[in-house]
Design a protein around this nucleic acid. Sequence first.
DNA 1: AAGTGGTCTAGACCACCGT
DNA 2: CGGTGGTCTAGACCACTTC
Lengths: 255, 255
Amino acid sequence: MGTTQLESVQEPKYWHLKTVLSEALDSDFAVGEILPNERDLAARFGVARATLRQALEQLELEGRLQRRRGVGTTVAPPRVGVAVSTGRREWTGGVGGEAWQPVDCTMDRAPAAVAAMLGTDSTEPVHVVRRIRATHGQAVAAELLYIPASSVPELSAIDAPAGAVRARSVLRELHRLGLEGQDRSVELGSARADDAKELDRLPGAPVLVVTTRYFTADGTAAVSVATYRADTCRLTFGDSGALEISEEEQDRQAS
Amino acid sequence: MGTTQLESVQEPKYWHLKTVLSEALDSDFAVGEILPNERDLAARFGVARATLRQALEQLELEGRLQRRRGVGTTVAPPRVGVAVSTGRREWTGGVGGEAWQPVDCTMDRAPAAVAAMLGTDSTEPVHVVRRIRATHGQAVAAELLYIPASSVPELSAIDAPAGAVRARSVLRELHRLGLEGQDRSVELGSARADDAKELDRLPGAPVLVVTTRYFTADGTAAVSVATYRADTCRLTFGDSGALEISEEEQDRQAS
DNA sequence: AAGTGGTCTAGACCACCGT
DNA sequence: CGGTGGTCTAGACCACTTC
């Protein structure tokens, strides 16, 4: 051998640990089952707790585990597919478990990045609608919708009472515009404190940030920034007439 | 000693640290600039290196920083938008920086999850085409394309030499089928060792996993599993005639 | 060889949940 | 209250890159 490297490259302990645990999850555990606590697990594998935690963090990132402070670590169900399709009826939203639920509506300055997309002055206040999306009774996404007052001129005179009621009227106005198209992007982020609270996660939890621009003939009418729980969600996109899997079908497959 | 009276707020140190660093990145650093090393930074902020690292990890996750072992920590450029659109000409791919580059083609068993989507027996070997996608000279994604032999019957007799040449001929056959649609999903994952190597990252690095099913009239013709670097990529989807931003435009905006 | 980030340890205390 | 995961420390050594 001499100068050549050892054939078995040294694999980090936490990586090997992750593999072992992953296989154990497949064979020895059922969804929802509680794992031994971190101190016991670390002792069983003969590693420090920090090392064990590094493996658990990876598995949680991959949606295999769910950890809750004060409770324990459980085996997570498969990720739920969430449709982020070219939704024609996006604003209204069905009454089923799929719906966006308006929570609040305020008037505020848009963040610089959003103002740039809207093509407005960043000091000009815009309508900010907060919506929550739930599936199977679980909150999966929190959204902030930014709508320049100029996009919904009818509303400026109304000045409805704040809260969900006003949110709905803004959405109604927006729906009335007749949107011509949209433009989406997805990237990884970490949950802000307010979003984390809505999603029942700790601040900094990994999220998929979906940014959508809504167009009318006049230009960008609104911008949405939606943060989806990365641990529990798989975003699905319906392309070119492909069959979009329905919620009911998913439930059947799961059972 | 333990905790000093760090304000009355119970904000974790690493979280506060992340905020401070993030603001410093905005004001005091240019893209590409090298930060002080972790030991110095930790000392400067009066925290343990592990705590400082927790903050850096978050910032790297958000695409603000780039860390390389043996080199240092640098300020990352804004994430590059990568089109994952309803690509009609997906198989061929232009010659520009946007292209998928075929690397290899083997015959192997598909993973169980892929076999399920293909609707084939998981023991039946399929063509496995490996492709790399690069933008601006940077590898951004690694893909495995699974194609049942039954989808490309013309090819079974040919048995071209392995490698990129065979990969290209398989893609050509697939292109000839006339695909009717596709079905995409995006989720968070961690890079396998082989993908990590292609993407110049460490194993376990966060990636966006884009799974695509390609349909013909007969059913699913192929399944692609592409892993994009989550730190450097923002996936963009062209919906319903929306303007897809071109690479050239992005470059102009960046400057 | 020197310097960087990556891994690992063995503790400690804190915040939160259930009982 | 006891038990859980979350944060934090002050070290140590390793793998890698660069000079």
